[in-house]
Amino acid sequence: MLVLFALGICIGLTLGLTGAGGSIIAVPILMFGMGWTVAQAGPVALLAVASSAAVGAMIGLRQRQVRYRAAILVASCGVVVSPAGLMTAKHIPPHLLTVAFAALLAWASFTALKKSRGSSHVGVSESVGGDGASCLRDAATGRFCWTRSCGQALAITGVGAGFLSGLFGVGGGFFIVPALRRITDLSMNAVIATSMLIIALVSSGAAISAALAGRLPLDVGLPFAFGAVCGMAGGRMVSGKVDGVLLARGFSALCGVIAVLLVAREIYAWR
């Protein structure tokens, strides 16, 4: 139990420091720390990610950074689709699923590195969406001007995040954050805060689906989740004191190394 608690702290700390993308390392941490497969680690990771992201979302709500209507729309689509990801994972051979997850980590590594190169040009309080963003805010109220294209873009984001959440047991922040940056004109702070609420809701839905299917052992899931919550609280307290560019590059390197290790482990197992 102490091992699970310690691993949970690592996940929560990473999630708190990186904003939303750190949940992707929850599954490989459990795979290496506990010797599990992706399918075994996914549901436990979802419980921890949901719990820790909820803490981040509450902080964002208190700071009035969360666009909760958009978050609810994205999360609703994600919750509906996540069981399909869970069912798909059951029918994919463990080795193939692990390699696919390694590819996902490699993509997250590339995205984080690309983000670090552009971080010096965009402040956390500045709008990050371009002129082609689908969801734009009203200058007077600060709320989204809801249009069909805005709703469709948010719904598609939810579908993608929900499927990946169910398939790999990830929160989807690595997918949601870039999507919100592209389709909205929110500040980076608001993007991260809104992503936290989406991650909490989507991961909760996927975790509940896993529990109903008998794939979420609470005796190991709860200590891991409690550690993640503690780590999240600590990470958010010190996140503003850590250089964002250095953090993004470090996270990129971590994802890249884990991806290589996962592939190496599978190659060794096949021999």
Score class of each variant (00 low, 15 high):
Met1Arg: 06
Met1Asp: 09
Met1Gly: 07
Leu2Pro: 04
Phe5Gly: 12
Ala6Trp: 05
Ile9Asn: 01
Ile11Met: 08
Gly12Val: 04
Gly12His: 02
Leu15Asn: 06
Gly16Lys: 12
Leu17His: 06
Gly21Ile: 03
Gly22Thr: 07
Ala26Pro: 06
Val27Gln: 05
Pro28Thr: 07
Pro28Ile: 10
Leu30Pro: 15
Leu30Cys: 12
Met31His: 03
Phe32Tyr: 14
Met34Gln: 14
Gly35Arg: 10
Val38Gly: 04
Ala39Asn: 12
Ala41Gln: 11
Ala41Cys: 14
Gly42His: 04
Val44Gly: 00
Ala45Arg: 00
Ala48Ile: 09
Val49Lys: 07
Ala53Lys: 05
Ala54Asp: 04
Val55Gly: 00
Gly56Met: 07
Ala57Tyr: 05
Met58Ala: 06
Leu61Val: 08
Arg62Tyr: 05
Gln65Phe: 08
Arg67Trp: 11
Arg67His: 15
Tyr68Gly: 12
Ala70Phe: 14
Ala70Asp: 11
Ala75Glu: 03
Ser76Arg: 03
Gly78Phe: 04
Val81Trp: 05
Ser82Ile: 08
Pro83Asn: 05
Pro83Val: 12
Pro83Cys: 05
Ala84Trp: 10
Ala84Gln: 13
Thr88Phe: 04
Thr88Gln: 02
His91Thr: 14
His91Phe: 12
His95Thr: 15
Leu96Lys: 15
Thr98Glu: 07
Val99Ala: 13
Ala100Leu: 15
Leu104Phe: 12
Leu104Ala: 07
Trp107Arg: 09
Ser109Cys: 07
Phe110His: 13
Thr111Asn: 04
Thr111Met: 12
Leu113Arg: 06
Leu113Cys: 02
Leu113Gly: 01
Ser116Phe: 01
Gly118Gln: 03
Gly123Gln: 10
Gly123Asn: 12
Gly123Phe: 06
Val128Cys: 02
Gly129Leu: 08
Asp131Thr: 06
Gly132Tyr: 09
Leu136Gln: 15
Arg137His: 09
Cys145Met: 13
Trp146Asn: 07
Arg148Ile: 15
Arg148Leu: 15
Cys150Tyr: 04
Gly151Met: 01
Gln152Ser: 11
Ala153Gln: 11
Leu154Asn: 07
Ala155Asn: 03
Ala155Ile: 13
Ile156Leu: 09
Val159Lys: 08
Val159Ala: 09
Gly160Trp: 07
Ala161Lys: 00
Phe163Ala: 05
Phe163Gln: 04
Leu167Asp: 00
Gly171Arg: 09
Gly172Thr: 00
Ile183Arg: 03
Met188Asp: 07
Asn189Cys: 14
Ala190Ile: 13
Ala190Met: 11
Ile199Glu: 00
Leu201Gly: 00
Ala210Glu: 01
Leu212Ala: 13
Ala213Lys: 07
Gly214Thr: 11
Leu216Pro: 06
Asp219Gln: 14
Val220Glu: 05
Gly221Arg: 02
Leu222Asn: 09
Ala225Trp: 00
Phe226His: 02
Val229Pro: 06
Cys230Ala: 15
Gly231Ser: 04
Met232Asn: 03
Gly234Phe: 13
Arg236Val: 08
Val238Tyr: 10
Ser239Ile: 15
Lys241Arg: 11
Asp243Ile: 11
Gly244Pro: 15
Leu246Phe: 10
Ala248Val: 02
Arg249Gly: 10
Phe251Gly: 01
Phe251Pro: 00
Phe251Arg: 00
Phe251His: 01
Phe251Tyr: 08
Ser252Asn: 10
Leu254Ile: 14
Leu261Met: 15
Arg265Gly: 15
Ile267Trp: 10
Tyr268Lys: 10
Ala269Tyr: 02
